[in-house]
Design a protein around this nucleic acid. Structure first.
Lengths: 179, 179
DNA sequence: AACGATACGGAGCATCGTTCCGGTTAGCAA
DNA sequence: TTGCTAACCGGAACGATGCTCCGTATCGTT
């Protein structure tokens, strides 16, 4: 179906992905597109041809980790001691993912809303739904709502920020889910 | 101490405040500064002389409401049936404030971090601390942490958005505070 | 080797926040 | 009333950023 790309195109795509990952770690996901292009040693046009929008680039960079998180849901449901435990552990995984990427949470409901949500959430919400179902908590929150709430709580949590521990707050939120 | 301003300056300041309030309601707090200047019928220079930074303008526009919220804390502690109740009610007030201003919550931890935090949080955190103290919850969260968490949960809550009810999530967070 | 399809680079456009400065005016003193 | 000056005003201009466009270079096939 998909036409095979030219060799230089394939090479550049990988180069860009690597450069983007590096820049995201160094300067956060808000890093100027120009910086990424420079780091990769390519022009602006190249970056936008491969990733039509900043959101597409972010999605591509983190796709693997999102997949892993999605896959962990059903797995936890099997191995954890209870559905509640599974949900709690899964949320922890999600929080870890967000907190370790500078500003990823912040960008998750900013402008790139459309594409980022379309992927991140569409991929993870069903998993969340399954876990909530198993825990019998569907009446308390809708899956999307919970995901967005957790995502929001992770904003500004720079992992080493002593003034704001997103994990603790998310823990309280989950705790509130059982009252 | 402060020198009396010129008549035109005082007039423009009020004009700007009104225009800003109107534009914020219509287009959210992220509205371009140019729009506000245009609405007020003044130039860019004027706006920046009165309010050195966008954050200063926002603070000025919402100062009254923040003061009211701060004042409500001690009052609730007197009238509510319990310290927990007082805390819960006060948080509701704070959430209402944020949710009814398009995007205010979102801007509260973006870039204007410095000035906005310096005012909004410095003003409200002590009140929150007092309420937490009265409720005996100081071991569960630090006041600043709770405020930021609640603020974050309000991001993207457009008051009429059926997919995201910030009030419910904040409710769960507070509920989790008693487990 | 030649040629058409595809990709590349980076100048260019539009939008924002913010700064700067020449022209204007309020408020006061003579 | 008339000047004078400090304070104020307007908006052009600057730097940063996201994104588009198109002439040029390169690939892969004939």
């Amino acid at each position: 179906m998909s036409k095979p790309k030219r060799a230089d195109a394939r090479r550049n795509e990988k180069t860009l992905l690597d450069a983007a990952a590096a820049v995201f770690v160094a300067s956060g996901v808000d890093a100027p597109v120009r910086d990424i292009a420079a780091k990769a040693g390519v022009g602006m046009g190249t970056i936008y041809r491969h990733f039509p929008t900043r959101a597409d680039l972010i999605v591509a960079v983190y796709r693997h980790q999102v997949e892993a998180c999605a896959a962990a849901g059903p797995a936890l449901l099997e191995t954890a001691s209870s559905p509640h435990e599974a949900l709690s552990r899964w949320i922890d995984l999600f929080v870890d993912f967000l907190v370790t990427k500078h500003g990823l949470a912040g960008v998750l409901q900013g402008d790139g809303f459309a594409t980022l949500h379309a992927y991140f959430l569409d991929r993870l919400v069903p998993v969340c739904a399954q876990l909530l179902e198993a825990a019998g908590l569907t009446a308390k929150v809708r899956p999307l709502e919970l995901m967005r709430g957790v995502g929001n709580l992770c904003i500004g949590a720079e992992d080493d920020n002593p003034d704001y521990d997103a994990r603790r707050l998310v823990g309280l939120l989950i705790a509130g889910l059982r009252a």
